[in-house]
């Protein structure tokens, strides 16, 4: 479930950008001064995001369901296996996160204690990112069907506000992703294999009597994540496959301008 997220989020961000291209109004700045505009033209051109609104929408509104289902599956799984206890932040987390941050930025020397599988900063960010996923889905539906799910749109401050939230959430996701990858790379290969296999390879302290020189694998993180992943993403692709292969009736070969610039005639 963790790994399915990777391609899904990539697809959602990519198709989302194709949609955003059609009306790219958000920018950082103050009054008339524009510091950074989302996004410079070269960004769209290099990623082939121009004039692709129809396809962007089609991918976005289809894969959104997979993202939602996968997210729900993750929550249910974490709940049923009680793994949420490892993940949920607690009273210590805010302070602890600061310690971890200071340590990681090389400002402080002593390593903060790691209680259980994740350190306090991990607890906090991983929990937040799940909340972020939920917010992405909720704000997404608020924009998708603002009248049919009007209470949701109302909670998020209306249609335009929900669209801003959706955009900010996306940016936050991308930032999280970058840091996440950097941290995993920093943590080393063994940590990575543990993410896949669900077991952590540990060197046993040779001073302990029963220890051997050989490293030994102990049970650890995300035990079932690895197997879930492979099974799951195949299933995703598979179910997609069967769903679509039925439909091969009419194909249109002419390619009209996929031209969102003139999209809305009203």
């Amino acid at each position: 479930m963790h790994w399915i997220n990777f391609p899904l989020i990539v697809i959602m961000v990519w198709s989302g950008l194709r949609i955003y291209w059609a009306e790219d109004v958000y920018a950082f700045g103050f009054l008339d001064w524009e510091w950074f505009k989302f996004f410079p033209e070269s960004f769209y051109t290099s990623l082939d995001l121009n004039r692709r609104l129809a396809r962007g929408l089609a991918f976005h509104f289809n894969f959104a369901w997979l993202f939602t289902i996968n997210g729900l599956a993750f929550v249910v799984y974490t709940w049923r296996t009680r793994e949420w206890r490892e993940l949920a932040p607690n009273r210590r987390s805010l302070r602890g996160s600061l310690d971890v941050l200071l340590h990681d930025l090389r400002i402080r020397k002593e390593e903060p204690p790691k209680r259980g599988r994740y350190n306090e900063a991990q607890r906090l960010t991983y929990s937040l990112v799940i909340g972020l996923g939920a917010l992405a889905v909720l704000s997404g539906f608020a924009i998708f069907k603002p009248t049919q799910v009007f209470p949701l749109t109302w909670v998020l401050g209306g249609y335009t506000s929900a669209r801003v939230i959706h955009f900010v959430v996306t940016i936050a996701f991308v930032l999280f992703f970058v840091v996440h990858i950097l941290q995993v790379a920093r943590a080393g290969w063994r940590n990575f294999t543990s993410m896949v296999t669900g077991y952590e390879l540990v060197d046993i302290d040779p001073t302990k009597p029963e220890a051997s020189a050989e490293p030994e694998a102990t049970a650890g993180s995300e035990a079932t994540a690895g197997s879930e992943t492979s099974a799951g993403s195949e299933a995703t692709a598979g179910s997609e496959a069967t769903a679509g292969s039925e439909a091969s009736a009419g194909s249109v070969s002419s390619v009209p301008p996929d031209n969102p610039q003139e999209t809305a005639d009203a």
Binding site: R55, A58, S233, E240, G244, S251
Partner: peptide
């Protein structure tokens, strides 16, 4: 298993892209 899943995912992706289209959208997306 992970490698197989990645390959399957990649094929699935290409399969979506190369679908025959209904009204200019790949069938499965339509």
């Amino acid at each position: 298993a992970g490698g197989a899943a990645a390959v399957a995912g990649l094929f699935g992706w290409r399969w979506v892209q190369n679908q025959p289209e209904t009204d200019n959208i790949p069938n499965v997306l339509r």
